[in-house]
Nucleic acid binder design. Structure first.
Lengths: 243, 243
DNA sequence: CGCCTCTTTGAACATGGTCAAATAACGTGG
DNA sequence: CCACGTTATTTGACCATGTTCAAAGAGGCG
């Protein structure tokens, strides 16, 4: 059966066939969650670590004014809260954006993996470091680029990340996120996201209809928003496209 | 001799006296670096992992337009590039902001630590997870708050981080950063940082002169910018101030 | 004292925000 | 399959926060 987690960790290059089998066993207890449901709340001390196997989720914080800021997008294969094992308490919440399938892995299973499966441990460590790299890129994106390029950059990133788990074609992918979600990720208003999307369409860079994002010219879009893939630390084969 | 790294890792609560001695030995090869010097460049594959022992450094990226975005502030006790051991290549650069003392720890030493000193390993892991938490908070800060509160929030964070390594008093600390540096951290222009600082002063929240930041009323400043300490995962004792 | 860097000021401008309403798309039950 | 209520996208007019450019003051350091 298809398993985005294995597919993703495999990108690290650390896994062997045995490891893949081990991971397969661990990810068998699945759960279906409706859109816009909280998976974990800020302050929680969960007993289980969750992994997204299908759908999109996000890390977010609610600030005093009631504004939501989304600090990370979780796509199939991503861990939700591996770090809680060490830090103890969640400093942010996680919610589904679309319908999601998740797996719960007990803390003891994680401990078993880290004790007895050094390559898997290394792959997990690798995955969290990539998440950190993405956070840094988002920071630079928000801080330095105008809205339309921010959005373009986010799409470029998403495209590559989905490619690496086999969920995107060479020039398009399913985009079930709402404009509000994009707005909350980039610190913009939905209205302005809407207008910027129109500019991107008008510039002939992409189309977005019926929840499908089609990139008309990948190179041109990447140049437009100054997108480089290095922060995703892809193995050459996954890059999907030249450069 | 005073060692900010040990002081910081000690906050994790994982270390024993033996571990502290081990760390002391490892951090003996020191180096002095002038302000505004690169410690590592994007694309580098360093053989040594560096730790800041005194002064301020930063992680940054240079984008196409030549703009610099600072994605993290490294204060005494912070690791520069622990992650390169796994990811291989730097996806950002690191530079000093002030004169810094650093230590270089060879990759083999790190491997020894992770193989034979489980509590130290756990503390290192803990430190990188806190860095990740800070990244998330910065994202929300930039995305959702107006300039003056962004700056106030940054100061509140810095205050607590410096307190935890013994480099701040209960209401003030040395602030050698330039307004350009603040601007590059928050995605603002130096001009606007300047004006926002004036507002903070006018509001009686702080004073900033001769490179010293004095917080006039810590609680009031924290309320002003909606600062909560939870994302820093402090042990109760280090919080320094109530709440 | 003089140079260089950093901070401060001013005025015009632009990007993105606010509020409110209209239109379109979606999903569910009949 | 259609009708309806709900949720999402789109539009318009006005406003505000933050930017740009340029120049004048302060401060630090040899």
């Amino acid at each position: 059966m298809f398993n985005a987690l294995i597919r993703k960790l495999d990108c690290s290059g650390f896994l062997t066939e045995v490891d893949r089998v081990t991971l397969q066993k661990v990810t068998s207890r699945r759960r279906e969650v409706a859109p816009k449901r909280d998976l974990i709340l800020e302050g929680d001390r969960p007993e289980y670590v969750q992994v997204v196997l299908s759908g999109f989720a996000c890390r977010y914080k609610l600030l005093r004014g009631g504004q939501r800021h989304i600090m990370a997008l979780l796509v199939p294969g991503d861990f939700c809260d591996l770090h809680v094992a060490i830090l103890g308490q969640m400093d942010h919440a996680i919610a589904t954006l679309t319908t999601c399938t998740t797996v719960e892995v007990s803390r003891s299973t994680i401990e078993d993996l880290t004790d007895n499966h050094p390559r898997i441990t290394r792959a997990l460590w690798w995955a969290t470091l990539i998440d950190e790299g993405i956070l840094r890129e988002w920071l630079a994106n928000m801080g330095q680029r105008p809205a339309d390029r921010q959005i373009a950059h986010l799409f470029c990133e998403l495209h590559v990340r989905l490619l690496s788990v086999g969920l995107a074609g060479p020039s398009g992918f399913s985009m079930p996120l709402r404009q509000v979600d994009l707005a909350d990720m980039l610190g913009l208003t939905p209205v302005h996201v809407n207008r910027s999307l129109q500019e991107l369409r008008a510039a002939g860079l992409l189309t977005l209809q019926r929840r499908w994002l089609e990139v008309l010219d990948v190179d041109r879009l990447r140049t437009f928003c100054d997108f480089k893939t290095n922060y995703l630390h892809l193995t050459p084969r996954v890059d999907g496209l030249k450069t």
